[in-house]
Simulated assay, not measured.
Amino acid sequence: MTTDIGNASDPHLRQLERMVLSMPMARTLGLTFTRITPGEVEVEIPVLDAFCFKPGQLQATAVFAVADFAAVAAAGSLLAPGWINATVDATLKLVAPAQGALLRARGRVLNAGKLLTVCAADVYAVNADGEETLCATLLGTARNVQLPVQA
């Protein structure tokens, strides 16, 4: 459920949210947007046993996925209509265990270019009381692609 979508009337941001949430991996992870504005996105996933390597602690794969979704969605929020993007490179650094009730990732754009956008995300483990602990940070690059014009 989306809770704080900036510029809720902006059809581009709404379409970006729909496109991301239509991806099978996003659905599998239980990804939700909690904030989306031009250049910044916040997403969350629940900590599910299916993604844990030990009870309550997520595998790095799920941590990477939520960070990637946040960073690249932030990059996508700045694209002109008719453009999409995809990850071409990303580095994740784990700094604390990913354990708690959910993971919250805040993505942002560092440099938006015509063909490449450099983006980043910080991932926080959120406990049942809502307290956040930084558990990972990602630096990525998204390739921007113009869709063919349909006649």
Rank of each mutant, 00 (worst) to 15 (best):
N111D: 12
M19R: 08
K114Q: 11
M1S: 04
V126I: 08
P148N: 09
P81I: 02
E42N: 01
T3M: 02
V47S: 03
A121D: 07
M23C: 03
D68T: 07
A90I: 01
L134Q: 08
T87Y: 00
A121W: 06
A90L: 02
L21I: 03
R35E: 10
V47C: 03
N127G: 12
M19C: 05
E17D: 07
S77I: 00
L94F: 14
A74Q: 05
A74H: 06
A112G: 08
P46E: 04
G140W: 11
Q57E: 14
E44L: 02
A96F: 02
K93A: 15
L134M: 09
P81G: 04
Q59W: 11
V145T: 15
P97L: 11
V118P: 01
G30D: 06
L94M: 15
A65Q: 06
F64E: 04
E132L: 03
L103Q: 07
L79A: 12
L110V: 13
V145S: 15
G82W: 05
M19Q: 11
L110G: 13
L48A: 13
P46C: 01
R18F: 14
M1P: 01
P81F: 00
F69R: 05
R108M: 03
G56T: 02
T32M: 03
T37R: 07
G130S: 09
G56K: 10
I5Y: 00
E44V: 01
L147C: 13
L31F: 05
A125R: 10
Q57A: 12
Y124N: 10
A67C: 09
A121S: 13
A96Q: 10
G140L: 12
T3Y: 04
L29A: 04
P148F: 09
N127T: 12
L29M: 14
R108H: 06
Q59L: 10
D4Q: 11
P148H: 08
P38H: 14
E131M: 08
L92Q: 02
L102K: 15
L79N: 15
V47K: 01
G130Y: 06
R14K: 14
V63K: 03
A26L: 11
E42C: 06
E40D: 04
G100Q: 09
L21P: 04
A128N: 09
V43R: 08
T141V: 15
T117I: 10
M25H: 04
E44N: 02
D122Q: 14
A136Y: 02
L13Q: 12
K114T: 13
C52Y: 07
L116K: 05
P11S: 08
V66E: 09
V123Q: 11
